[in-house]
Design a binder for these strands. Sequence first.
RNA 1: AGGCCCGUAGCUCUAACGGUAGAGCGCCUGUCUCCAAAACAGGAUGUUGGGGGUUCGAAUCCCUCCGGGCCUGCCA
Length: 334
Amino acid sequence: MSKKRILTGDRASGSLHLGHYVGSIINRLKLQEEYDCYFIIADYHAYTTLYEKPKEVRAASRSIFVDYLAVGLDPQKCTLFVQSMVPEHSELYLLFGMLVTIARAQRIPTLKDKLDDLHLEESLASLGLLGYPVLQAADILVYKADLVPVGDDQLSHLELTREIARRFNYLYGPTFPEPEALLSQVSRLPGLDGQKKMSKSLGNDIALMHSSEEVTERVRSMVTDPTKIRKSDPGHPEICTVHAFHRAFNPEGAEEIAAACRAGRLGCVEDKRNLGAFLNAFLDPIRTRRQELLTQPQRLAELLSYGCGKARRTAALTMAEVREKMQLGDHLFW
RNA sequence: AGGCCCGUAGCUCUAACGGUAGAGCGCCUGUCUCCAAAACAGGAUGUUGGGGGUUCGAAUCCCUCCGGGCCUGCCA
């Protein structure tokens, strides 16, 4: 009962890929054993940029939910839910919006990066995009989460969450914990191009839902060590994308492979063939489980509604308290 | 509510006076590589937001509709 609570999740902007897996999913599989975990599929967040594409967002939400189950997040151990199905998020976001100045929101460093990605001038950013970190604060605090697994790029968002919690507690009385970062060892997987991090929008990803043929094809297109021209040339595994994947998915064999590559005994073609086989061996059980789940729409619907219901009950408790403290709601009116 | 600006390839944009729709990036193919990358060679992509009009001829001018944006106002 005294388990600490965690909130984390994914924007519903695309299917999960191997970068998500090594970056956070694998960590969540452990966290669900020790903590009271809430895993959010953040479709409202997806709408901050994909508001013109509702079907894409819904397809992504569905695909992420099924993948959560397929990789082994267990609805008996953790709470899996979709953000928009818990309307308390939006109500708390609205109220938190009063506690944050425009200047403060504009000072979040990730906003600038996001605008660059979108080729947007700051003057063209939507109010929703500016409010993104405030919505995140609502996501976290509506469950009174104690811990938030974050990469260092998200620390500034968590800092805002803590400020909001502190300010709310000061103004209306102690209500929220100040959530702390749970810094996990960040193993970041590069994309197929070896340059940028793996991302669906860059098209350099291997999705959990890719077929084995697609995986083989994508591995074949990976960038390797450009100085290894001939098979017998000594390679540099530390700068080779294929090897980065070996280290992530085949840690036991990685050293031996590196040695063979350096010695010029291992060619890239063979190396890629081996990696493809490894990845497919890893993905096959996930594929099997996904296929099984997809034949049981009724069960999927039940699991989704179970998770959302559970999340909503928790969120409703917080909102009742927030309304009370902020003198809102009909039972206080007269 | 008024005023102004914009809409062209997946993205960023160029196309004087109305005169064969283009470039860069990205993408695909080939050569080269054990692969991939790089380099080189080649290729594709468009109802120029929709409709109407003027004209021998409209991305360009006019009308209209749709979509987007900026400014001013509406004592919210």
